[in-house]
Simulated scan of single mutants.
Amino acid sequence: MHARDCYVSAPGKAILHGEHAVVHGKVALAVSLNLRTYLRLQSTSNGKVCINLPNIDTFLSWEITALQPLLDGCREHAVLKQELDDDLLMRLRVFTGIADASTDTRSMAVLAFLYMYLSVFGEAESLASITVSVWSELPTGAGLGSSAAYNVCLAAGLLSARGITSSPLTPQQDSARWSKEEMDLINRWAFMGEKIIHGNPSGVDNAVGTWGCFLRYHDGNITPLDRVPVLRILLTNTKVPRSTKVLVSGVKDKINKFPAVMKPVLASVDAVSCTCEQTLTEMSARGPSAEHYNILEELIDINQHHLNVMGVGHSSLDTLCKITLAWGLHSKLTGAGGGGCGITLLRPETDASVIQSTVEELQACGFDCWETSIGGPGVQQHSSDALTRDILKILTSY
């Protein structure tokens, strides 16, 4: 069949407040990062399916005739099905030689792509000959939702190419978004990709990639926050590796050992998240003020202290907070902690020279640093004219 060409993008994610506490039933605020993953899907006539992932040096192709037999006996799974087809997944592992225990980025990205491609196009009269190229501004393995942005892009691109969702972009538009119903479908498919990569994900990362902006997460319920302002930040990657599983387990052990001490800490983190949500709502309704930013900065400081009490801080994060505070800026870790990434709030009046000096000091410590924003749009379809020259060059060079 002939597929529709398209360009799409999806954002990464950060946790503004509530990491770790969310595991124990408290509120967390997840936000979109204006560091995005971009996908180009091109219909071809060479009888092949190609995936190009330059960020991880992966360039693969398969003959459609070799992929077609994998669908034998699997055609009953419908487009709206939300559960993984374990039989198809097993066949793909055998076909690609990816072992059950494999978790490396390259293998998981390939497996998610092939699964979604076969699932979306499997009920068509024939599989589509396509080339998919994906490039990302997001570092992998940094807790910034890079896999979710990838899966959201795959879901949006493949569903649109197959004609299951619309092509919302008009000739007069540079970028456009799908209807709520279509976004729900994209999110469900992206969640299946996340299951392939992560096993038992919360669904927060793919929801942020789909809907963007700010999301409230509580007891498994994800609620987008309406009309929340976009905030400028510095995003810093300390590049210190950490194990999310070990850090989560450590917090749990501390709660079990000192319940009278730690449960009030979790309750306070919950209050920080809720107070931040209320402040952001007021900023949208009344317009942002200096006092609003003062509150946001204080909440950042309070929550960073909470996270240190939980035992998920790190000397690299202490260095980040010390350097930024010397320039009048406020920072906290985002995600699992123990290293990883941190965010620094930038006020509207923050001078460019202050930002530059701060970044230079952080880079001198060996950190990676980006000036970006949080609260931007989720998955979008783009015209080629809307993409910057550099991004377009990357996506069209394979």
Rank of each mutant, 00 (worst) to 15 (best):
K48Y: 13
G342M: 00
L333C: 04
Q304I: 03
L60T: 13
Q173D: 15
Q172F: 12
D351T: 04
A285G: 00
N303P: 12
M90E: 14
L88M: 07
R106C: 08
A190S: 05
A149I: 13
V354D: 11
I233W: 01
L317R: 00
P54D: 04
P54W: 09
A207W: 12
V120A: 01
S175E: 15
R93P: 03
R227P: 00
G47L: 04
V251F: 14
I233D: 02
S373E: 12
E76I: 00
L88I: 02
I343D: 01
I51F: 15
S102N: 14
E63W: 04
A78I: 09
N303G: 10
K48S: 11
G122Y: 02
V269Y: 07
Q381T: 14
E19C: 10
L35E: 12
S147R: 10
D219P: 00
T65N: 11
G145E: 07
N237T: 03
D5C: 08
G203P: 09
V265A: 11
T358N: 07
Y150G: 04
S268V: 06
D174E: 15
S353A: 13
L247K: 07
T165N: 06
I130N: 08
D86N: 13
H382P: 07
L127D: 06
V312I: 09
L392S: 04
P168V: 13
G143Q: 06
P139C: 10
M1C: 12
N55S: 09
I300D: 01
F214K: 03
